[in-house]
Every structure is written in structure tokens, then in C-alpha cells.
Design a binder for these strands. Structure first.
Length: 718
RNA sequence: GGACUCAUAGCUCAGCUGGUUAGAGCGUUCGAUUCACAUUCGAGAGGUCACAGGUUCGAAUCCUGUUGGGUCCACCA
């Protein structure tokens, strides 16, 4: 027996070497897997590329564990298992992280040259990418590093830009002028999924407005008002519709149209609505419908401009206070009420979103206008793929959530006013509204008016590139991998990406490749602290997975993350729990030691003479194997892990080993061999079944089992 | 306002398509331990499965409602 077993299992002493052994074997790459009679063909998972802007957190640890379990299981079952790792430049996310760093250093991106800023963030990202990769390896990930991709690889950027141009030609991308979600801190627009509604207490001001009283929370926007809207069915006001009124404000007088629109709620406020097209999404829509002009009165920094007269230069909050005070003096405030409502905020900095009128590139999602194929919009195409079962969700309820979102989604703003991203390859005219893709930099003058053109300085929303990730990593459209491994089998990701990422991938997959990008979506929940509270830096309850690995080993951490964690639900990460699975690892170690001690020099090729009890025990093993197989096939990973844990410890170690001790010491050689045979058989099978869950210790043990010299468990048959 | 989800032992949670005395880990109580393992072993205490109805021979499990958490979505200014 190897003297390794003379002391407790110390994960630290083995894991690095084992990972190296796996890497050197080449088996992470399915093209190198040994031939098998029961070859089941390709099985593919694309790793959600971690943001290359920091270290791994507990959520990463969970998804790596889940995906690795699935990959290892499939590989052992005879699939050509491919798991492609990657790294995401994570546009806005990373820029936000980097801006915080700049802030600490007393610097600001707004005082930097864009190229200089880009280069700095690139250096920062490449450094963090390395940490991230090392940490993914420490988790035991059996992914194919030879296929690793980064979202800013040159060829990937080119393909992403090509998609943009193609969509433009198909009428699925357009340049539109409308109010967009503007973060005044980060100085960029955001898509609707990048804002977060927050409940806020505000005042609702009732302002005398000509013959009306209008209710508003934003009196500082009155200088951008162009109309008053009322419901055509409102008997109080309908006689005014179509007329022009004059209203007073602290800067003088405003001439406003009175329009009638069904969208105005008769019950709310006074039933009369002031219309500010440039600074409110609804008002913008009204203005489009009724042909009203836009008056911009607030600038990109959230300050009032010259159109606001004496309030010019003031910030929104300050201007609001002053305007109200002045209106009060003029006797134009009828009343002020407390008002609780939801306001959209930047999901990164919680700054209130300022609707801002800005031309941007949009992806046409729903059906008016352009269509993707067969007259279907992108959203309809994606909804159909889920509706008819080409894509399944685990757990199933995400299906409904997905469909609801798809049926209600709005056009997707893909322009970002940040440097960290893939440049939008487009030319914009300085004189007119001409805007078009220009991949080869061929447009030097405006084809519409002959005016000067400039390069679009914006970059793509990061989800525009990561939405194409399954295609990009598999070398769509001509690569060998694309033909072999697309569509992929499973997309495993956090439930927070149900809108940001999953729909985009479905859309691009269907639009570009005419086929769903994956068949199953497995969604995991959040990893919370031991008390079930969300981890956050400010609360100081963040658990670093690498610390836990250092303390208890990767295998223990993996078990702790999996057991008791059902798909879609949040899980609590408790150090004591991990400690328990560290003890389990040692239990496996000790049981192995015992079996090996009693197997010295035994030839296991002989047929044993089994007792009835032996047969019963082996039958029990067969049932466990059958059950585990079924559970893993159905992604019931938590059940498989818990059942194997229980079987190994409380059935195999506590009962079977104990009841065989006498036979091993006995004089009856035939009976002794039967016992040795049974114990070896159970140990060997258990180690195999445990491998996807606890890859390191099982690999180490497997090589030490009789007759296994030089074998690699990772590619053994299930 | 809408959708989704959860409510099971002191704590964290399993319990798949309904089927004999409801499970795990941790914690707790009592005991053991030179014999693979104190990162151990044995024994025990502890739950009217949120509440109220219903379906069924039978429900923690399915249906309806109520209460209380959580998450997400939504332009009522």
C-alpha cells in the first residue's frame, strides 16, 4: 500500500499535481479522448465567460462546479465532452470597476484620452484574466483551455461588428432618436435591463397651468413642456382639445397645445398631464404620436441648460427647489402631496436615470417593421423556440418568465458611450441624420448630403457580443467546431441573467445560425452567506471560495455548494458545512486505506464465491449506480451528491466494511477472497461515481487501486 | 398593479411524476474508543410538514383560498 495513506487526506498536497496531470493528458480537449465503443457523440457546454475584472466569487465557484460535474459525467458516459472556457471584457461592468479604481487614485476618466483609458483598462483586464483563469483551474474545471476565447480577441470583434452590419442590412438594426436611459454619473446610456426600479418618496406638485392644474413630480422640467394632454373622454377638459393655451412660469410665458390621448389616466392627479417630450419616456411617445417638438432643457450632466433661463447651470434637485419656490410666490402652486413611486436607477451606482433624447443604435425586437425570417420578429422567433420545446428550462418556471419578457420586450439600445468595448463600426454625418455601418472604413463623405462624416465613438453593449458567445466560441459560420458542437447541449447560468443574456443568445442563435444555441437552460440561484443573507462588500459577509479551498480542499467546497442546492433556488454557504465534506473526503481516504491494507497482493481476476449477503450488497450497489445515473441524467445533481455521500459513509463504511472485518481476518481463504472482492468492487465503483463531484481525491485514489497504475479516472467508463 | 417563488426538527435545507413509523447535515443529550479513520463510532431527544377548505382508499406532495417571507417585471405624470 502506498504510504500516502498513512496520514489524513490533505487536499493541498494533491490538487495542483492532479490538475497538471489532467491538463497534460490532453483529455480536456474532446478531440484527444480515447476511442470508445460506446461513443455517444459530442456534448457541449459553453462556460458563461467570467468578467475579467476581478477574482472569482462564490457564484463562480458554484457554476464551475455544476458545469464541471455535468461535463465530467458526460465524458465518463462516453460523450465527446467539450466545455469551452472564456473571459468577458464585460464593457460597462469593467469600466465601472476601473472608474472606482481611478477615483481612489484621485483621477477621472473624463480627463483622460480615450485611447489611454482603453489601454489602461486592457492592462488591468488582462492581469485579472490570469487570476480568474488560475482560480477556475483551482476549482478543478475540466474545460478545454486550448479553445479559450476572450470577447476582445480580434477575430471575435470583427465577427461581432459583422453581425451589426448584417442586421442593419436586414432592417433589424436602426439608428433612432428617442429618450434613452441616461446615467448622469457614468455618462452613458443603458438598456432597459440595466436599470433597476427603486421605490422613492417624492412630492407631487399641483401646478396651475392656464385653465388646468397639472400634477407633476418634476416641476423643473416645465421649460421643456410643449403640450398638456388630457383624456378625450374626460368631460372636464375635452372642450380644450385642439386649442392652444398660454401658461405662466417664472421665466415668462409658454405656448402649449392641448392634446387628447387615451393613455392619460382620468383618475390620476387632476387628469391633466404636462408633456415634456425630451425628458420623459411617455411624453416622448406622446410627442411622436401627436407630432410635437422636443425642447431639451437638461444636459448630459443633469444640469439645466440655457433654455431654462435663470435656472441654467443648476442641478436638477436644486432647480426643482427654486422653481417650486418661485411658482409658490407667483401663486401657481395649488398643493403639494407626498408621493411614493418607483424610479429607474443605474444598476451599478443607483443614480436616478435621466431620460435623455439621444440618437442611438437599436436592435428591432418586436414585430413592427423589419423581420428576421419568415415574417417573424426576433422576439417572436425566440419565444417560439421556447414555446415549442426546442429549449427547455430547469427549473421549468423560467419558461414562463422568459416568454413573458419576450412578448413584452422593447427595442434594444446597443450604443454605449464608453471606451471599454467593441467599437461600433459606423459612420455618422455631422450635417444630417445619415448613419450607417462601415466595416471597411470606406465612407468618407455623407452619401445623403455630402457633408463631413465621423466615426461613431460609441461601443457595443457588452451583451451584444456575449449574446453571440455560443456562435463565436465555436467559430461560426465555417469552423469545424461549429459543425460538430452546435447547437450546444446545456447553458448553465445564474437566474439573474434570464433577461440580460439568455434571450440575446437565443435570438442571435436563431437569427444567424437558424438553430437554437442550446437545448437546456439550467439556472442556479444565488450563493448567500451562512445565514442566507446576500453577500455584499458593504455588509462584510463575503466568503471567498479560494479561502475555503485553502482550508478544506476543492472537493469539499464543491460538495458544500451542491448538496441541498436545488436548481433555481438560492443556497447558504456555511463554513461548517464545507468542513463536514472535508471530513467526508477523509472518510473516503480512510476507507480506501482499509481496503488497500487488506488487498495486498491479491489477484482480483479470479471469480469469487459470493455469499448471499455479498450478492445482496452488490445488488444494492447496482441500485445506487442506477439511481445516480438517472439523477445525473436529469440534472438532479444535489440528489446524486447527497445519496452517494450517504451510501459511501453510512452504508459502505459503517455497515459493509464493519461486517466484513471478521472475514478478512479469518482463515477461510475462499471466504476471505470474497470479502476482499466485494469491498474492492464497491470502492472502485463508488470512486467512479464520486468523481464528477469530487474529482481530485477520487483521481488520486483511483491510480492507487489494484491494477490501475497510470490510468486516468477522468476518462474511465462510468 | 402583475408574475414567479418559498413556508418541513433549534439552524441550513432535501423529499422526482401522491402510497407503510417524514429525511440529511450542523447543533444538542448519553455513551464508546489501543483493532482504516477523534477529520471517529454507537444510541437518543427533537416536526399536528404556515393556516383553512377540497380532490382521493390514501396528501408534506395535487387544487382553491388566507397569512407571512423573497425575487422579478410594470410609463399612471
Amino acid at each position: 500500500m502506498n504510504e500516502l495513506f498513512n496520514k489524513p487526506y490533505e487536499a493541498k498536497e494533491f490538487e495542483e499535481a492532479i490538475y497538471k496531470q489532467w491538463e497534460e493528458s490532453g483529455y480536456f480537449n474532446p478531440d484527444n479522448l480515447p476511442e470508445r465503443k460506446d461513443d455517444k457523440g459530442p456534448f457541449t457546454i459553453i462556460m458563461p465567460p467570467p468578467n475579467a475584472n476581478g477574482h472569482l466569487h462564490a457564484g463562480h465557484a458554484l457554476f464551475i462546479t455544476l458545469e464541471d460535474i455535468i461535463t465530467r459525467y458526460k465524458r465518463m458516459r462516453g460523450y465527446k465532452a467539450l466545455w469551452i472556457p472564456g473571459a468577458d471584457h464585460a464593457g460597462f461592468e469593467t469600466q465601472v470597476v476601473y472608474e472606482k479604481k481611478l477615483e481612489k487614485e484621485g483621477r477621472s476618466r473624463f480627463k483622460m484620452d480615450p485611447q489611454e483609458l482603453f489601454d489602461e483598462i486592457m492592462a488591468f483586464t488582462l492581469e485579472n484574466k490570469q487570476y480568474m483563469e488560475q482560480e477556475v483551474k483551482r476549482m478543478g474545471a475540466s474545460c478545454d483551455w486550448s479553445r479559450e476565447r476572450f470577447t476582445l480577441d480580434a477575430d471575435i470583434m470583427k465577427k461581432v461588428q459583422g453581425t451589426f452590419a448584417k442586421m442593419y442590412e436586414d432592417g433589424l438594426v436602426y439608428r433612432g432618436l428617442r429618450t434613452v436611459n441616461w446615467c448622469t454619473k457614468h455618462q452613458t446610456s443603458l438598456s432597459d435591463v440595466e436599470t433597476e426600479s427603486v421605490e422613492k418618496m417624492d412630492k407631487l406638485y399641483y401646478i396651475k397651468y392656464g385653465p388646468f392644474v397639472v400634477a407633476t413630480v418634476r416641476p423643473e422640467t416645465i421649460f421643456g413642456d410643449v403640450a398638456v394632454a388630457v383624456n378625450p373622454n374626460d368631460d372636464r377638459y375635452k372642450q380644450y382639445i385642439g386649442s392652444v393655451i398660454e401658461v405662466e412660469n417664472p421665466n415668462g410665458k409658454l405656448i402649449l397645445k392641448v392634446i387628447g390621448d387615451d393613455s392619460v389616466d382620468i383618475e390620476f392627479g387632476t387628469g391633466a398631464l404636462k408633456v415634456t417630450p425630451a425628458h420623459d419616456n411617455n411624453d416622448f411617445a406622446l410627442a411622436q404620436k401627436h407630432g410635437l417638438e422636443h425642447i431639451i432643457t437638461i444636459d448630459q450632466f443633469g444640469k439645466l441648460n440655457e433654455k431654462a433661463g435663470k435656472y441654467a447651470g443648476m442641478k436638477i434637485a436644486e432647480a426643482r427647489e427654486k422653481v417650486v419656490a418661485d411658482l409658490e410666490v407667483m401663486g401657481l402652486i395649488e398643493k403639494i402631496e407626498d408621493y411614493k413611486h418607483q424610479v429607474p436607477t443605474c444598476y451599478k451606482c443607483s443614480t436616478t436615470i435621466e431620460p435623455r433624447l439621444l440618437p442611438q443604435w437599436f436592435v428591432k425586437m418586436s414585430s413592427q417593421g423589419g423581420s428576421a425570417s419568415g415574417g417573424q420578429s426576433l422576439a417572436e422567433m425566440a419565444a417560439k423556440a421556447v414555446d415549442d420545446g426546442r429549449i427547455e428550462f430547469i427549473p421549468d418556471n423560467y419558461r414562463k418568465i422568459f416568454l413573458y419578457w419576450m412578448n413584452n420586450t422593447i427595442d434594444w439600445n446597443i450604443s454605449r458611450q464608453i471606451v471599454w468595448g467593441i467599437p461600433i463600426p459606423a459612420k455618422l454625418c455631422n450635417e444630417c441624420d445619415f448613419a450607417a455601418p462601415d466595416l471597411e472604413d470606406e465612407i468618407s463623405a455623407c452619401p445623403k448630403c455630402g457633408g463631413e462624416v465621423r466615426k461613431d465613438a460609441d461601443t457595443f453593449d457588452t451583451w451584444f457580443s456575449s449574446g453571440q458567445w455560443p456562435l463565436l466560441t465555436l467559430d461560426f459560420p465555417d469552423g469545424k467546431d461549429f459543425k460538430t458542437y452546435y447547437p450546444t447541449d446545456v447553458m448553465e447560468t445564474g437566474h439573474d441573467l434570464i433577461f440580460k443574456w439568455i434571450p440575446r443568445m437565443v435570438i442571435f442563435g436563431l437569427y444567424l445560425a437558424n438553430e437554437v444555441p442550446f437545448k437546456t437552460v439550467y439556472m442556479h440561484g444565488l450563493v448567500n452567506d451562512a445565514k442566507g443573507k446576500k453577500m455584499s462588500k458593504s455588509k462584510g459577509n463575503v466568503i471567498n471560495p479560494i479561502d475555503l479551498i485553502d482550508k478544506f480542499g476543492t472537493d469539499a467546497l464543491r460538495m458544500g455548494l451542491i448538496i441541498g442546492n436545488t436548481p433555481g433556488n438560492d443556497t447558504a454557504l456555511d463554513e461548517n458545512k464545507i468542513k463536514g465534506y472535508r471530513n467526508f473526503a477523509n472518510k473516503i481516504w480512510q476507507a480506501t486505506r482499509f481496503v488497500l491494507m487488506n488487498s495486498e497482493g491479491v489477484d482480483f481476476t479470479k471469480t469469487p464465491t459470493l455469499t448471499d449477503r455479498d450478492k445482496e450488497v452488490l445488488e444494492e450497489l447496482r441500485v445506487v449506480k442506477e439511481q445516480t445515473t438517472k439523477e445525473l441524467d436529469n440534472f438532479l445533481i444535489h440528489l446524486a451528491a447527497e445519496n452517494l455521500y450517504h451510501y459511501f459513509w453510512h452504508t459502505f463504511a459503517d455497515k459493509i466494511i464493519e461486517e466484513n472485518k471478521g472475514r478478512l481476518k479469518g482463515e477461510d481463504e475462499v471466504d476471505k477472497y470474497a470479502a476482499q472482492y466485494v469491498l474492492n468492487e464497491i470502492l472502485r465503483t463508488s470512486i467512479k461515481m464520486l468523481h464528477p463531484l469530487m474529482p481530485f481525491i477520487t483521481e488520486e485514489i483511483y491510480g492507487n487501486l489494484p491494477g490501475n497504475d497510470g490510468k486516468i479516472l477522468m476518462v474511465e467508463e462510468w
